[in-house]
Design a protein around this nucleic acid. Structure first.
Lengths: 242, 242
DNA sequence: GATCGACGTTCCACTGAGAGGAACGCTTGC
DNA sequence: GCAAGCGTTCCTCTCAGTGGAACGTCGATC
């Protein structure tokens, strides 16, 4: 049941694109959104004029202007620019995958990623989402978030994603207390089997975390205890820079 | 004179945000777009529901969902993922600012940037635009572009941005021929005084360049001759990976 | 402390931008 | 040769969108 407003319909069309889709046909878009074909056709034609979508010989894909517009979002932009040197240093020192993420609702959204050369292929994507409760960055930010946020996350339910996912609200709260104390969050195969990470919260003067930095690698090779100070230092440095 | 269609108006509102604007007031948006205030108000309210824009206590800013959507644009995404390891290597080997850019119309659009720690503050931005004819990445791609593109660039006029900008179409053509021969483009203070760069085109099997990689630094310190092979190698490596 | 201008917001009668069923020609695969 | 699916066009109808008018509220300015 698509929205009736033009804007709602257009956004339904855009959000019909999922990470895997390189390009979609008009018919597929009409099917996914529930819009009549002529309606979808007309709207896509106008979006294409703005380069928000692009017409290819065999379908339609999201366009360059959308990318450009997205980069103007001030939160991501300012944060990423400030973070760049710290992330580079961290990458250079460890050669593992480095992430920068921000909280959004119950999830975390990745804002920057420097993929480690020899580490595992990690499914995270810039602009991608993961649940907060089972990721290193998510827990780091949840530990320094307003209590409502934790409550909302718990209320939405903790789904078991791997055998080691923490699904008991009590255990999660204990863990967050530990994170608040140490200033560093760890994750051992809680979101994906075989993968571990160390994360630290970034703060901008307010008591709450505005972002988090993490290092990710193979669970059996990543020496989290050794890396923790480096991640913490980078996060503190970025916090000071904000 | 704003467009009459709802979609056009909404996009006018979004594109009213310029790189410097963190957030704008409703009145300012109405002024910039020429839309009546109630119209802008109503549209922004709907965009805010989708998190395309966000309401702050003192204004309106572009939202997280716009960032997420932009990251799904397949061209940028696939390219950036494939390029990441090559860019990291290049950065590590040189410690100078590394750029990845794609062509769009008469311009280049930066898709990734790793800012060098000790290099100059460069005004380029991920998602930002620069003219093709006076940048390293731009010339690298122009040299391997369909001839219409060069013609269009020349037709639009070559503006002198610094004393060293190449503004004679003949000289530009000669330079592009040299770039085709060497496989590397250089730029010495043609877009910004004090800054130089070395760039190489990335190709995906087709005869035309789909992107370019560059290293940028202080004009008086960057040893372009020494860095050229590294940039070229990275670009060739990425070309093969595509 | 009265006046002013600019702000965001609400209301509502009018209307033209948008809708979408019907039908088109084209390609693809039985 | 036919059927199914594709993108595209047409054209009448209607309701989503419009925007002038007027609102309460806030800081400056006098």
């Amino acid at each position: 049941m698509p929205p009736k407003s033009v804007l709602g319909r257009a956004l339904t069309l855009l959000t019909a694109f999922r990470p895997g889709d390189a390009e979609l046909t008009l018919a597929e878009l009409a099917r996914r959104t529930g819009l009549p074909k002529p309606t979808a056709h007309r709207m896509l034609a106008e979006l294409a004029e703005w380069n928000v979508v692009e017409r290819t010989p065999h379908g339609i894909r999201l366009g360059m202007r959308l990318f450009e517009l997205g980069q103007l979002a001030p939160l991501q932009r300012g944060l990423r620019e400030a973070a760049a040197p710290f992330l580079s240093d961290l990458f250079e020192a460890t050669h593992e995958t480095v992430h920068l993420a921000v909280p959004d609702g119950l999830d975390v959204v990745y804002v920057q990623k420097l993929p480690g050369r020899h580490g595992p292929q990690i499914s995270s994507r810039i602009g991608g989402r993961m649940p907060a409760y089972c990721t290193g960055v998510g827990k780091a930010m949840l530990a320094f978030a307003p209590p409502e946020r934790l409550a909302a996350v718990v209320a939405a339910g903790l789904t078991r994603r791997t055998p080691r996912t923490v699904v008991a609200p009590g255990l999660l709260a204990e863990e967050l207390a530990r994170i608040r104390e140490r200033g560093v969050a760890e994750e051992h195969e809680e979101s994906t089997v075989g993968i571990a990470c160390v994360a630290a919260p970034v703060r901008d003067g307010s008591p709450h975390a505005v972002a988090a930095i993490s290092i990710t690698g193979w669970a059996n090779r990543l020496d989290t205890a050794r890396l923790a100070p480096a991640v913490r230092t980078a996060a503190l440095g970025l916090s000071r820079a904000l």
